[in-house]
Every structure is written in structure tokens, then in C-alpha cells.
Design a protein around this nucleic acid. Structure first.
Length: 915
RNA sequence: GCAGGGGUGGCAGAGCCCGGUCAAAUGCGCAGGACUUAAGAUCCUGUGACUUAGUGUCUUCGAAGGUUCAAAUCCUUCCCCCUGCACCA
């Protein structure tokens, strides 16, 4: 069977019959499933397929259970990445273009033409949509929209008005990584090398300076992460190669590196009054604001004008760079006051560490390592031995000293980029800006948090263990910026120059799906606050409007979302915001019911990444293996919550099994659908019903991996056994049920099988089989297990004796041995057992041997079949075993033999004699 | 640092909540065999060690202790790994 032909055939069938375009139907129960909508700035890869496949399996399962299921999809285009991507393409960025060509196979001409954000969105969204259709996702595409659609914008603005009414929208200051050239906020994908700028508070300490003994109006300002080491300052470092300037800050005159002054201007408002020569600074003395001590200024090459203020205070006992720079200038032996004591080190930990690592000089990369080592250790275990906070932990003293200095005006805080220097793509150095009129959503509100927690309590989280993460995030969230200066999406209603940020416009959009396909005749201008109030809240002046009614009905029918699907990394933001915004805006009956999160897909054991080039595009994968194989492969490998590995051999394994099943279905389709007659047929039926029963529970709880094992891998094993054992194999009736069970995983093949087997209509809309308990037969299954065991044993023994058996005799243990087991269970002591056996007049010699064995495991004796059942099972398999070994096989009760070996037969373990 | 999740056989990965049927599912890999002119596919067998006309013994589930008749599973301590810590979708 040709996978691609089957896929095409059935996906067009689904489209033609509008199989997955549900409308409200008051007579039927509904289920509403959503998965995170994709961001079309690249094609999707196989990893994206996992979430959607999981959601689709669930949606398809629910459909088989008679639910009216809505599973919609749209595209998220909000924010800057799409703009950034278009810009990079316009600039013919070789990295981007090569990824598109080499990984995704996009013709270079096409790729290079995607310089307009809208064209880019159109191209990639079409690509993604096509991929989703090929995967067979049962999506209702009528409801598709883009997050920059005018009507959607209206909806999002409504959402923000609601939040504002609740006082959840606030305005304030906010530090942000900033490109001074672009005059724009900078995030990881705007920087060279995709580095995420990390902002960090740093203390700036003022050292008053004196020149030739005369005090001066100037102060040198130094930046430090470790203000507590102020007690150990021996000197100040500047870099003679750097340009320094004098600046005015609130009337004070400060000396600072020119670059630093420019970078800090945005947050401090500095006025540069003129240059200062480095050689002049070196002549100055600086006064320690805490100790009052006067220290010299020395030159050092490690000081960078792009980090902090471009001036550094020297604490050689605790800072490896400071020690090294002193040593480099021949002052390695000057007194170095110890501020912090550290176990395992002498009074100068920095020196010790440098010597231990053998750091050559301040330019040596090892200096960085020494610094990290000392800083981390001192932060953890350091205890102050000097100054006001002597005896306290260094980490506590740090805060106190910093606060003290700020109080006296000798220090202040700035925000810097911890991992500086970082370059914007435009080439400018990234700096920190303080946004004065930044808008926030205030997730810190206590009542709001309480409501969110209440929602979480009533919600199902799959996996259950993710619940604690939601709880943590709910507690942790506080004010969160919700606008940006640039990006696609929706304008912020209270300041139209700003755009709503991307995570903030994707929190309640699931509500929009319920009406998005009904808006064609309603102009955007009519979609005001009253309109959405009426649709989603059923109140306000438009609540009775005729145009609103069908929308309201649709919303009321579908909402709430019964299951939200996403990757697990989104719990920390999107999914928790989803909860927050729902509880803020929606009525309680419309709060989220369930969130399902999954792990990533790894490629041959490693994370997929553009730089590694190990991305497998979804459509390429489909072409290579077929949609059903890919669907199965991305979900079956691991538990839902953990990362799963995709590799060739998994996919090929699935494909070959599917091939085996296809073959059996083809054969079965030719046979009539008959009732089971033989023992092995009963066995298969029992196994099937057992699986149906547990499959239902597992589908409900989305135990995808276990399901996959049970209804696919186990089933193929069962089928192989059946085919060996059956006299006239006929799997027609079996497959009629099984196909429905597997259909959520492998919808295309299932449709094909279903039609081959004479099923009516689409299997996608069929009914999930009901388990027939009366057909589950433990004894039959145990009997079959016995046969498998005996089969394996014969194999083993004949291997040991190294010859083909000429005759096999199987002796089934006598009934009294089973009784002995029962006695042992009731009376698990050796003496008790022997006494009871004696009373029963059992052959005590044999009893003793068996009893010894039994007693080892007396608390966990296997339950055994009656002798009759064992005999029945094995006799039924006589023919089969005879064919297997092409020799005579005889099954006898133990008592009918004089053979010595026959006495070693045990319940569940017949004796085997091979001649 | 704080928070969360983990450490199981060559690999991936179940089992752990609810201790015994666990030398530990399943898949992959590997080895041998069948089929084939051959390869591939498929099927069978094996895959901790030792042993054997058999269902036996020993040592294993990050490390060390403990509870128990019995521990991969429960308790304690320790070691190691991964993820997140914010404006980034």
C-alpha cells in the first residue's frame, strides 16, 4: 500500500465531507480542544508535530466517543521575530538564507523574496497549514485567523479594556536592554550571536579624589558586584588606553569612562562637561568613603570602558584580577587587607586561587575562572572579618553595606548588562535604557492570584506533576510589561503608539475561535466594547442585538476549553497567563478545565537547533516515512512529559510493523467476519477486550506512550502468536474493532483499513468499540501463557542437548500439587505445610522437595490453573508444537507416566521429556 | 542561590505512587539461525555472570545506611545531571 496515496485519498475525503467542521448541536455533548497556535517565521519541524499530534489524537478519540469536537487552528504573528526575520532576509543574512535552503529546502529565490513581513507570514503559514493537513490533523480550518487581523485586534483591545477596568493595567518605569542606534528594545534575536542580554543591578561607589594633597570636587565612580569588599580596597584601577570624561550628575562632578558615560546617560541623565586625561587621573588619590583611607590610582589593562563605569576598585585579597594586576606591576607583595574569611583558603583567597590555577597574568583567560571560583565560594560561605558587619555572612553584609552607603550618598545603583559587551545586529553596543512610561499587567494582585489558584485547583493538569509548577508561577508572577515599541499585532488601546506584546495577546484567544468564522458580515468598526461584552459576557447594551445572538450561542456552546495543549516550557509564561486572563475576564463557568503539556522531540538524542543543522522539517519527514508513521513516532517514544527521541530506526520500526498489519488486514478483508470458535480465537478476543477496556482509560488520561505500546506493539506481538497458533486464521472481526482503536494515532491507514473491512462511513466518525467483559477470560490467557512458556522451555532443552527432538512428552502436574500450593498459601510455614500434606496423605518424599521450593517464595506464590485447564491448553497446542518441532508431541497428566522426570512437574511448570 | 524534574541493563525507556509473580516491559542495537544465488526485508533464538536435560545460583536498578520474612520500589543522608528564574516568542 502506498502511504502517500492513502493519505491524499483520505484527507480529501475528510475535507469534502467537512468531517471536522463542527457547529453547535444542542443534542450532542461537546469537547473543545486547542493547541498553541504556531508562529510562522519558519516552516515547522518534527518537534512542532508532537503537541498537535497529541491534541489531535485526543480530539479524534473524543470524537469516537460521540462528542461534538472542536479543534481549531490559527496563526500567531505578534511581536518582533517576524519583522526581524524579514529584515534579515532583506539584508541577505547568509545564516538565515542557508538555514532556509539547506534545512528546509526553500528555493533561494523564494526565500530571498520574503522581505515583506506579510509575504513572509503568508508563505510560512501556508507551508505550516499544508503540513498540518498532511499530518491529518482534524482541524476546523474555517476558523483560521492571524493575530494581526483587524477584527482580532478589536478583540484583544477589548481584552485590555477589561483588564484596565479591573485595575490590572498599570504604568511605570522599567529597565530594558536597548540599542542606541535603532532606538529600540533588544532581545536575543536582535543581537549578534543571539545572545540574550541579562540585566543586573550593580552598585556604584563614589571615591572623592584629591590631587597633590588638595581635595577636589571630583569623585571617581566605580562599579562593583561586591560592595562588602569596600574595606579591603588598596587602590583604584583605570585603563590608560581609555578616554575618560568629567560628567555632571545632580550637581556632582564625577569621573567616568567616556563610553560608560554615553551608555549610562539614558538611565542617569548625565551631562559631559569635558575630557579628563588618564595620566592626570593616575596622579590623583581616592578616598574610601567608608574607611576614609586615601588610596592610589593605578593603570590596568583588564579594565573595560564598556563594563560599568570603566573604573574599578581594587580588592586584591578577594578579586583575582586585582591581585594579578598588582602582581603584573610588581606590587604583588603589598599588604592586602582580608575582608572575608573562606574555609580552605588563607587570608588572601584571590592570591591562593591564582597560584593554585597558575594564572599567568591579568590577560590570562584562567583569571576569569579564578574569579568565578572565588566569587561563588565567598558568596556561599564567606564570613566578614572586617568592618561594621564583622561575623556576618558576606552575602548578608553585602546588602547592608550597600544600603548604608546609599543612605550617606556615597553610592547608588545602576542597571547594567551582566553579559556585556553585546552587539546589536546593527553593530551598536547594547546598553540599558529605563523606560519611563512602560505599561504593565499587574499579575501581583492578591485577589487575582487567589482566583488563579482557585481555577488551578479545579483544573486537571496532565501530567499531574506539572501542577506544582503552575502554582509556583502563579505566586511568582508580578507586574509584567505588556507593551513594546515595535512589532506586529494589536495597538495598545491606551497608548496607540505602542504595540501589545506577544504573550499578552495570546491568553484568551481561544474564545475568539468560537466566533471567528461568523464575522464576515460584521464590519470591524462595529466591534466595540459593547459588542464583545455581549458576545463573551452576555451583558451590556448590545446583549440583545440580533447580530450578536448567533455568536453568543456559539461561544456558549463551545466554551470553556476542555483541553489546552502546549509544550511544557510554556507553563512558566503562556499557560499560566492563560489561567490568569481567563479568571480575570471570563465567567467562572468558562474557566480552563484541563491543560496538557508535553516535552520536546529530540533528533537522534540531541536537541534540534538551527546551528546544529539537525532539524527535520515536518513535511520532509512526512514525505520520507508517511504521516501516520510520523504521528506515531513523535508520540510513542516517551512519556508525555519527557523529551522523546526521534530517529530513523524508530520510524522504520513503526513503518515495518504497520506493513505487517497492512498485509494481515488485506488478507482478512477477503475472509468473512465470523465469530470466534477455537481456543486461540477466544484468547485473541480476550486480549482484545482487555485492551479496549484499558485503552479507554488511557486515552482519557492521555497516557499516549502506554497506549502506543499496548494497542500497537503488543497487538503486533499478539497477532504474530495468533498467526502461528491458529489453524485457519481469520482476523476480520478482530481488525474491525482494532482499527477504530488505533484510528486516533494513524487516521489515514485506519480509514483505508476500515473501508477494506467493509466499515460504513468514515472510521474517524465511527464509534469506539465497547469492551465485552464476558469475553475476557483469565484462564484462557493463562493457558496460552503456559503454552508460550512450554514452547520456550522445549526450545531451551533441545538446544542444551544439541539435537532435534524426535518426540516430546509434556507431563502436567497432578492435582495434589496444586492443593499443596493452596495449603502453603493459607499456612505459610514449613512445618504447617508438611503436617497438612501428611494429613492429606500426599507422597511425602515429593512433598518435601516441592515444599522447600515453595517456602522460598511462600508469600508470593503464583496463582495456578487447575490441572484440567492446563491439560486443555496444552492438548490444544499439541498440533502447533508438533509443527514447530516437526516431531510427535504428547501431553499427559503426570500420573499416567512412570518416567522419572514426570515427577518434577509443578503447577504452571510441566515436566518436559525430549527423546 | 531559589524552584521544579531526574539518575534503571550497549542505547532509548517502562517499572517506583499501591514492596513479593523483577535479571527488570517495550523498542533499538548487537550476535547466531531460517529464508534467499546474494543483499535487504521478514521470521526465530540469544543478549548481567555462572551453571544445567531445563525451569538453578550469584551479583545488579547513582552511593551509603536503615525499615522488612522480602526493596529498583518505603525512610535517611550524600553525590551527580537537566530545566526555569522574566519581557523572549
Amino acid at each position: 500500500m502506498d502511504a502517500s496515496a492513502i493519505e491524499k485519498k483520505w484527507s480529501s475525503q475528510w475535507a469534502e465531507t467537512k468531517a471536522f467542521q463542527p457547529d453547535p448541536d444542542p443534542k450532542r455533548k461537546k469537547r473543545y480542544i486547542t493547541a498553541a497556535f504556531p508562529y510562522p517565521n519558519s516552516p515547522q519541524h518534527i518537534g512542532h508535530g508532537r503537541t498537535y499530534t497529541t491534541a489531535d489524537i485526543y480530539a479524534r478519540y473524543l470524537r469516537l466517543n460521540g462528542y461534538n469536537v472542536l479543534f481549531p487552528m490559527a496563526f500567531h504573528v505578534t511581536g518582533t521575530p517576524i519583522l526581524a526575520m524579514a529584515k534579515r532576509i532583506a539584508a541577505k543574512d547568509p545564516d538565515v538564507l542557508s538555514v532556509f535552503e539547506k534545512i528546509y529546502g526553500i528555493p533561494p529565490k523564494k526565500a530571498e523574496s520574503l522581505t515583506d513581513p506579510r509575504e513572509l507570514v503568508a508563505y510560512f503559514s501556508a507551508e505550516i497549514e499544508q503540513g498540518m493537513k498532511e499530518m491529518g490533523y482534524s482541524l476546523d480550518w474555517r476558523r483560521k485567523f492571524y493575530s494581526y487581523d483587524e477584527k482580532f485586534n478589536k478583540f484583544i483591545q477589548w481584552q485590555f479594556r477589561k483588564l484596565k477596568e479591573l485595575d490590572y493595567i498599570v504604568k511605570g518605569e522599567y529597565p530594558i536592554a536597548w540599542c542606541p542606534a535603532d532606538k529600540n528594545a533588544v532581545s536575543a534575536h536582535d543581537t549578534r550571536g543571539d545572545i540574550d542580554p541579562e540585566l543586573e543591578d550593580v552598585t556604584v561607589i563614589k571615591f572623592k579624589v584629591s590631587m597633590s594633597g588638595h581635595s577636589s570636587a571630583d569623585s571617581l565612580i566605580v562599579t562593583t558586584y561586591r560592595p562588602e569588599t569596600i574595606y579591603g580596597v588598596t587602590n583604584i584601577w583605570i585603563n590608560p588606553k581609555v578616554a575618560y570624561v568629567r560628567v555632571k550628575l545632580k550637581g556632582e562632578s564625577l569621573i567616568i569612562a567616556e563610553n560608560a558615560a554615553k551608555a549610562l546617560d539614558l538611565q542617569l541623565g548625565l551631562e559631559i562637561t569635558g575630557p579628563v586625561k588618564a595620566e592626570d587621573i593616575l596622579k590623583m588619590k581616592a578616598v574610601n568613603p567608608v574607611t576614609g583611607e586615601s588610596v592610589p590610582i593605578y593603570p590596568a589593562s583588564f579594565v573595560s570602558p564598556d563594563i560599568g563605569t570603566g573604573i574599578v576598585m581594587s580588592v586584591p585579597a578577594h578579586a583575582p584580577y586585582d591581585y594579578l594586576a598588582l602582581r603584573d606591576m610588581g606590587k604583588g607583595n603589598i599588604p592586602m587587607p582580608q575582608v572575608v574569611s573562606l574555609k580552605g583558603y588563607g587570608p588572601t583567597p584571590a592570591k591562593d586561587e591564582c597560584e593554585k590555577l597558575g594564572v599567568k597574568n591579568q590577560e590570562d583567560p584562567l583569571a576569569e575562572k579564578a574569579t568565578e571560583e572565588i566569587y561563588t565560594k565567598e558568596a556561599h560561605d564567606g564570613v566578614m572579618v572586617l568592618g561594621k558587619y564583622k561575623g556576618e555572612k558576606a552575602i548578608d553584609a553585602k546588602e547592608k553595606i550597600s544600603t548604608d552607603m546609599k543612605k550617606t550618598g556615597s553610592a547608588f545603583n545602576i542597571v547594567t548588562i551582566a553579559n556585556a559587551p553585546i552587539q546589536c545586529r546593527c553593530g551598536a553596543g547594547v546598553i540599558v535604557n529605563i523606560l519611563k512610561d512602560q505599561w504593565f499587567i499587574d499579575y501581583g494582585h492578591t485577589e487575582w492570584k487567589a482566583k488563579a489558584k482557585k481555577c488551578l485547583e479545579s483544573m486537571v493538569t496532565i501530567p499531574e506533576k506539572s501542577r506544582s509548577e503552575y502554582l509556583y508561577t502563579i505566586d511568582w508572577l508580578k507586574t509584567r510589561p505588556c507593551t513594546r515599541a515595535a512589532g506586529l499585532g494589536t495597538r495598545f488601546p491606551f497608548d496607540e503608539t505602542k504595540m501589545i506584546e506577544a504573550l499578552s495577546d495570546s491568553t484568551i484567544y481561544m474564545a475568539y475561535y468560537t466566533i471567528s468564522h461568523l464575522l464576515a458580515d460584521i464590519p470591524a468598526s462595529e466591534m466595540d466594547e459593547a459588542f464583545f461584552d455581549a458576545v463573551f459576557l452576555g451583558k451590556g447594551p448590545k446583549a440583545k442585538d440580533k447580530t450578536v445572538q448567533p455568536l453568543r450561542e456559539s461561544f456558549l456552546y463551545w466554551y470553556p476549553v476542555d483541553s489546552r495543549h502546549s509544550a511544557g516550557d510554556l507553563i512558566r509564561n503562556h499557560l499560566t497567563l492563560y489561567i490568569f486572563n481567563h479568571v480575570a475576564i471570563m465567567e467562572q463557568r468558562h474557566w480552563p478545565k484541563q491543560i496538557v503539556t508535553n516535552g520536546f522531540v529530540l533528533m537522534d538524542g540531541t536537541k534540534m537547533s538551527k546551528s546544529m543543522g539537525n532539524i527535520l522539517p515536518l513535511r520532509k519527514a512526512i514525505k520520507e516515512y508517511g504521516a501516520d508513521v510520523i504521528r506515531f513516532s513523535v508520540v510513542c517514544g516517551a512519556d508525555l512529559s519527557s523529551d522523546t527521541d526521534f530517529n530513523k530506526s524508530v520510524a522504520e520500526g513503526v513503518r515495518s510493523r504497520l506493513g505487517l498489519i497492512s498485509h494481515l488486514v488485506e488478507e482478512s478483508a477477503k475472509l468473512p467476519s465470523t465469530r470466534p470458535h477455537g481456543r486461540i480465537e477466544k484468547w485473541l478476543l480476550s486480549r482484545l477486550n482487555r485492551k479496549i477496556e484499558s485503552a479507554e482509560k488511557k486515552y482519557e488520561a492521555l497516557q499516549i506512550r502506554e497506549l502506543a505500546l499496548e494497542i500497537f506493539y503488543d497487538v503486533t506481538a499478539d497477532l504474530q502468536w495468533y498467526m502461528k497458533r491458529a489453524h485457519e486464521p481469520n482476523l476480520h472481526a478482530f481488525f474491525q474493532k482494532w482499527v477504530v482503536m488505533i484510528a486516533p494515532f494513524m487516521p489515514h491507514y485506519s480509514e483505508e483499513f476500515w473501508s477494506m473491512l467493509g466499515g460504513k462511513g468514515l472510521v474517524s466518525l465511527a464509534k469506539f468499540p465497547e469492551a465485552d467483559h464476558s469475553k475476557i477470560d483469565d484462564n484462557i490467557e493463562k493457558g496460552e501463557e503456559l503454552i508460550q512458556k512450554v514452547h520456550a522451555d522445549i526450545e531451551k532443552i533441545s538446544g542444551l542437548i544439541g539435537k532435534k527432538p524426535a518426540k516430546v512428552t509434556i507431563y502436567v502436574a497432578d492435582e495434589w500439587k496444586r492443593k499443596l500450593y493452596a495449603i502453603a498459601k493459607a499456612n505459610p510455614t514449613f512445618e504447617g505445610l508438611m503436617k497438612a500434606a501428611n494429613a492429606e496423605k500426599m507422597p511425602m518424599k515429593d512433598v518435601q522437595t516441592i515444599a522447600k521450593q515453595i517456602m522460598k517464595n511462600v508469600h508470593a506464590l503464583p496463582s495456578v490453573l487447575p490441572q484440567k485447564d492446563e491439560l486443555d491448553a496444552l492438548k490444544d497446542a499439541e498440533k502447533f508444537l508438533a509443527t514447530e518441532y516437526s516431531c510427535e508431541v504428547v501431553v499427559l497428566p503426570e500420573s499416567q507416566s512412570k518416567h522419572e522426570k514426570s515427577r518434577s512437574a509443578l503447577p504452571g511448570k510441566p515436566a518436559i521429556v525430549i527423546e
